[in-house]
Design a protein around this nucleic acid. Structure first.
Lengths: 190, 190
DNA sequence: CTCAAGGTGAACAGATCGGTACATATTGGA
DNA sequence: TCCAATATGTACCGATCTGTTCACCTTGAG
């Protein structure tokens, strides 16, 4: 049972911050909703900021594990790349979907030097690295460029799914991605 | 000088909310930084939420005017479409760039039914309508689909410019956009 | 049994939150 | 000159914010 309350707190805080926002969620409310006493919360994390950083670390692991596992199920590297957008479609369809936790974190802590902002940026960097690797396996001539293009579409789809009126942003992104992927794989421009 | 203080307040609040965030900026601080008394602020806007809505309306006008004017300078409709990403590049290069005000608003007010959230969504809808029109003028067979794809790239570029480590998200988006545009215009799939 | 680690509840601190009350200027037109 | 509109400063309200203090409870290992 070592540090079980700590993990429980991080797990529950993740859901509440995601639904309500960071500034909008006070530590008192967090204590009330999780059933964990404020005393304990501040024993594990010396500040709200530390708790948020822990939440973001957990979210980073959860999300990357989920996404890349879904992608691996598609088989060949090239299929994995477009399968990313099928996974996104599933995510968007979940009733509790409220955009990307890291985009939200960066929005609420806009200063690029703020620890929370840099931690959110780190998530995007790790996503890029894994995607770049798959792009290389798929035979892309410029894996980094392909990974960047696909990430643009992914972020755009997330924002649009949360903010727009569009019916199927993930489908739109997938359609655009297919063109970008085949341009990068089928017609190596050299 | 009718209602000049009101406009001045909205204009200054726009900058402060954009830099600091909505929840993070209190009405007291707003009064202190703008030099406008709290009494006056609450005479013009009965709540912080009303002020934020006014700020978003102003931002919507400013941004759309700026963007579409920049695009029109490019001449022909097709050139306008890719010129959007040149305009974005200029924006990202500004020292004060901190992502899109509407993405931030939606992040801080994640409930899709919240007035601030819906107002932010309205901005994206207006962007879509204008872009769709240009896509139609450019001869796209499915202007709505092309507009959606380009908006995905635009939102993705904004998020990445704010959150990522990438050197030139606008350039990446433009490159991807060129492929999508030519697929939609040069090879009508029918 | 004992003792330390981890958890609890409740009260508290000082600051800030959104928002109001009230009495006092300043100003431009009739 | 007088009035109405607009703005001001200051103090205040109750609630909530992050964070602390302290005395007490539970539990498992030696």
């Amino acid at each position: 049972m070592r540090a079980s309350k700590r993990d429980e707190l991080v797990r529950e805080a993740l859901g509440i911050f995601y639904r309500e926002g960071f500034h909008a969620t006070g530590m008192d409310r967090l204590a009330a909703e999780t059933g964990i006493s404020k005393t304990t919360m501040f024993k594990h994390f010396h500040s709200k900021e530390e708790l948020i950083l822990a939440v973001l670390r957990l979210r980073d692991q959860n999300f990357r594990n989920w996404l890349f596992r879904r992608m691996e199920e598609a088989g060949a590297p090239r299929a994995q790349l477009s399968a990313m957008f099928d996974a996104l479609a599933e995510w968007f369809a979940e009733p509790g979907f409220r955009s990307c936790m890291f985009i939200k974190a960066a929005s609420e802590y806009p200063d690029p030097h703020h620890p929370i902002h840099t931690q959110a940026a780190e998530h995007k960097r790790l996503l890029f690295l894994q995607l770049q690797k798959i792009a290389a396996d798929a035979g892309a001539q410029d894996p980094a460029a392909l990974a960047r293009a696909l990430l643009l579409l992914k972020e755009g789809a997330i924002v649009t799914a949360h903010l727009g009126h569009e019916a199927d942003p993930a489908g739109d992104a997938k359609a655009a991605a297919e063109k970008v992927i085949s341009a990068a794989l089928d017609h190596p421009q050299a």
